[in-house]
Amino acid sequence: MVSPKIAVLVPCYNEALTIGKVVSDFKIFLPDAEIYVYDNNSKDGTSVIAREAGAIVKYEKKQGKANVVFKMFREIDADIYIMIDGDDTYPVDCIQQMLDQFIENNCDMLVGDRLSNNSYKNQNKRAFHNFGNNLVRNLINVFFGSELKDILSGYRIFSKKFVKNYASTIKGFELETDLSIYSLNYELVIDEYSIDYRDRPEGSVSKLNTFTDGFKVIKLFFNLVRLYKPLLFFGTVSAVMFILGLLFMTIPIREYFEYKYVYKVPTLIFSIMLIILSLLAFMTGLILDNISIIDKKNFKVRYNSTR
């Protein structure tokens, strides 16, 4: 039986302190894999250290993790793809067990779950990160009817079908959220493997901004709900406007029954406008929902035809 070709993808930006160890660990625990480090305009010699450690080094000038990963997906040919950050926060010694689970369960994507065993909560010292992880996870699980444990993990394994069909317009650290929602929307096979997360070593600086990047992730989530679940999104907007319209309409109706005359005509007009807009929003949701259903059917045909 021919062994699958495995590619390790390491998007990097100023990770000179840790990239050498990440590459060396994969050389030990997955010696037959090809390790690709894509340097995203680092200024600390990341690419030199990665090359000396034995990685295949390439470059992406467009700033942003998502831009780097898109280029990796486009350029690298393999049967199985392992994506990991270059900051040495994810364990490599369990990679064979992760691969075994990925292959055995015929997964499209397997996620390194940092949250189930509380290793992320115990190790991560950045304020509000645990709160942000739980908020995003709960929102996605509620809206998409899933039971995922870790939405934002950067440690993932993908099938070739997934890599060659994945498309998005994002650019930065919202990538993991988009990967998770994309998989849920198209009903791909997702699995999780509990890992022991460790915080960055002393001197290694995170590129994440808790509030700025957190806001981007929340904004992306609602944009993806609008895109992937338009009937739910526009139906909610429609229901809110319809209820407000009815509430405002009670004022002129009460006046009419009391005085046989409507004094607050602008309120009546405003309430009617809200009800009309609510109907338009609902029709928009219906139309976009039908388009979304057709898109899913086309995706499945395209996905199943990928060799």
Rank of each mutant, 00 (worst) to 15 (best):
G172L: 08
E255C: 06
R226Q: 13
I291A: 05
L286R: 02
I151C: 07
F211K: 12
D199F: 14
P230D: 11
I151R: 02
V237A: 09
Y182C: 01
K149H: 09
S271A: 15
K171F: 10
L184Y: 01
T177F: 10
P201T: 06
S204N: 10
G154M: 08
S206H: 07
E255A: 01
L220T: 10
G203K: 04
M249C: 12
A167L: 05
M249Q: 13
N290T: 03
E187P: 01
I251M: 10
E187G: 07
T212H: 11
F158M: 07
F242S: 13
L274D: 02
F282T: 00
I181H: 02
A167H: 14
E187M: 04
G172S: 12
S180N: 12
V189G: 00
L280F: 09
V189C: 11
S159H: 01
V237P: 00
E174H: 05
I190G: 06
D191I: 00
A167E: 15
L232S: 03
A167M: 08
L208S: 05
R200F: 08
I195C: 10
R254T: 12
L188F: 06
L280K: 04
L231T: 00
E187L: 06
K229F: 02
Y193Q: 05
S168E: 01
K160T: 11
E176P: 01
L179P: 04
G154L: 05
S183N: 10
F215W: 07
F233Y: 15
I218Y: 07
V225C: 02
A167T: 13
L220C: 09
D178I: 07
